[in-house]
Design a protein around this nucleic acid. Structure first.
Length: 287
DNA sequence: AATCGGACCAACCGCCCCCAT
DNA sequence: AATGGGGGCGGTTGGTCCGAT
């Protein structure tokens, strides 16, 4: 068979495969051939962490090629954001965190990424897993037992016995050890240096919020943006500011590395009347 | 001791959004 | 303005652990 016939056949095959891909939707983010799947090894973690130490997170597409990791770029990003990233709190959820998840889920639905922004040391995956395994069942049980799916009168007390019975030992893993290695990097990194910096005045914050909302941005989106910019403190302050301008509690969101900067949220999330929080806060509708 | 079933959670999959071109 | 690609997100899966039988 002449060589050009083979070329024609190959061209036709590539044409067909492109048609198939078009029908099936977008091709996968990376070539499946030779891509390793499954649990990450400590060696892979070290390679990924040391690469990110040098280059910073981002441009995930380049990570596998530059590191030689036989992993999909998405897998690298996921491993970093959910596991290796410094500052991730692991182990059992505190009653306060449980209360926040319950209330925020009721308010926002399954917007785990948004909910995670209010729990700065927890990942969306962790929160999602926790909801699916612990909290969802309770909700279903309540519904099935014919009771109104209302919040406990006070989450702090309601979940006390459950939390105390849980093992509160701190999660210790190779990943955490790797994360500890990054402490030095955290301190020197400009993006992380924002964590704990002085927060602008309420007046200027309010001005920014007003400007943003005038430009068609809703408060939630702005807050999420702040959180995603590694600046949970500023976002929290904005929410606090927003609330105080709206006439509710004017408590200041204190920035303290030792304690979560959530004094205002704690108050309204754990407040007994938090079920009416939507009206009280006049939060914009979330779609 | 073996088996089974539920709980837990890390990781994958596929869709969607946003931004660069 | 249209389009393609990268990254983010939510849903789901599959492996492991552990207690009950």
């Amino acid at each position: 068979m002449p060589l050009f016939c083979w070329h024609l056949i190959l061209l036709y095959i590539s044409f067909l495969s492109s048609r198939i891909f078009t029908k099936m939707g977008r091709p996968p983010c990376c070539d499946k051939v030779g891509i390793k799947k499954g649990p990450w090894t400590p060696e892979e973690d070290i390679i990924l962490v040391s690469y990110i130490q040098q280059h910073g997170p981002g441009n995930w597409r380049a990570v596998p090629t530059n590191t030689g990791l036989m992993r999909c770029s998405k897998s690298c990003r996921l491993r970093w954001t959910n596991y290796l990233r410094p500052g991730i709190k692991r182990g059992s959820f505190t009653p306060h965190e449980q209360g926040m998840i319950i209330h925020l889920q009721a308010l926002l639905g399954n917007k785990w990424a948004v909910i995670a922004t209010y729990l700065p040391h927890r990942t969306d995956n962790d929160i999602k897993n926790y909801w699916n395994t612990h909290l969802k069942k309770k909700k279903l049980k309540k519904i099935q037992s014919g009771l109104q799916p209302q919040m406990p009168s006070h989450p702090t007390t309601s979940y006390h016995h459950m939390a105390s019975s849980e093992n509160s030992s701190v999660y210790a893993s190779s990943a955490e050890n790797i994360s500890r290695l990054l402490q030095g990097w955290m301190r020197s990194s400009p993006s992380n240096a924002d964590f704990g910096k002085t927060v602008p005045s309420h007046e200027s914050q309010w001005q920014k919020i007003e400007e943003g909302m005038a430009n068609g941005h809703d408060l939630e989106r702005m807050l999420v943006f702040e959180h995603q910019s590694s600046n949970a403190a500023v976002a929290c302050d904005k929410l606090s500011c927003y609330s105080s301008q709206k006439g509710s509690d004017s408590s200041v969101c204190k920035i303290d590395n030792g304690n979560p900067p959530l004094s205002f949220l704690e108050k309204w999330l754990l407040d007994e009347s938090a079920t009416q929080v939507e009206g009280a806060m006049e939060l914009p509708p979330i779609f």
